[in-house]
């Protein structure tokens, strides 16, 4: 297995995101971590991209990986980026860790033509079972103890879609997954993670 296939299996949302991004697109990856998504998209789609990352460790790894990275706190907005300056603005597995989630979604659509967001589904049945039995869930998607987690805004797919409609954000596509498998039946119950593509509503 090559590194990219390996990456696609450990981060199934990457493959889903790449599937939506055309060749040579411009991409801004928010909360880009070590830059592996951008590296993946560079190889798979020849994108021109920048990452935004807050952690010092992420900055160093991105630079090592030859990924353009801007150190910034997403909760302070995207003021370094001009309106309509990217084809896609991606927020992968970071939404739930943002404090000012609502303005950030609006910022995504100010800077990008389309937004792509992936996040863990708090409504996934296993999470519901954990809560039913009296504990906050801990899983592959939600690996943190409740008292030591960056996640401050967990939500279900329903919750996210409600917020989109409130913000007049038009959802273009949705892919619900559990592990690497795509889920079609009862997604808000059976899907552990989803990727959404959206644009400004008309």
């Amino acid at each position: 297995m090559n590194t990219h296939a390996m990456l696609a299996s450990t981060r199934p949302d990457f493959a889903a995101i790449a599937a939506w991004i055309p060749q040579n697109a411009s991409v801004l990856d928010l909360g880009c971590g070590d830059g592996s998504l951008l590296q993946y998209l560079k190889t798979e789609r020849n994108v021109r991209g920048y990452g935004v990352e807050i952690s010092d460790a992420g900055i160093v790894t991105c630079i090592q990986n030859g990924v353009n990275v801007i150190q910034n706190d997403l909760d302070s907005g995207l003021k370094d980026f001009e309106s309509n300056s990217f084809d896609y603005v991606i927020l992968s597995q970071t939404l739930q860790a943002t404090r000012h989630t609502e303005p950030l979604i609006q910022e995504i659509l100010r800077v990008g033509r389309e937004g792509i967001v992936s996040f863990p589904n708090f409504g996934y049945w296993k999470n519901r079972v954990d809560v039913l039995f009296g504990n906050m869930p801990i899983s592959k998607e939600l690996p943190y103890q409740w008292y030591d987690t960056p996640n401050v805004h967990l939500c279900t797919f329903h919750d996210f879609e409600e917020l989109c409609s409130k913000l007049n954000v038009q959802i273009l596509e949705r892919r619900v997954m559990t592990g690497t498998d795509e889920v079609h039946l009862l997604p808000n119950l059976l899907g552990s993670m989803a990727v959404y593509k959206f644009q400004r509503g008309v």
Binding site: I59, N68, I70, Q71, D80, F81
Partner: peptide, 16 residues
């Protein structure tokens, strides 16, 4: 950084 982004230069920015 901003004019470099505007002109699509490769740029990284670290705030130490």
């Amino acid at each position: 950084v901003r004019p470099l982004l505007h002109n699509r230069r490769n740029v990284s920015y670290a705030e130490i």
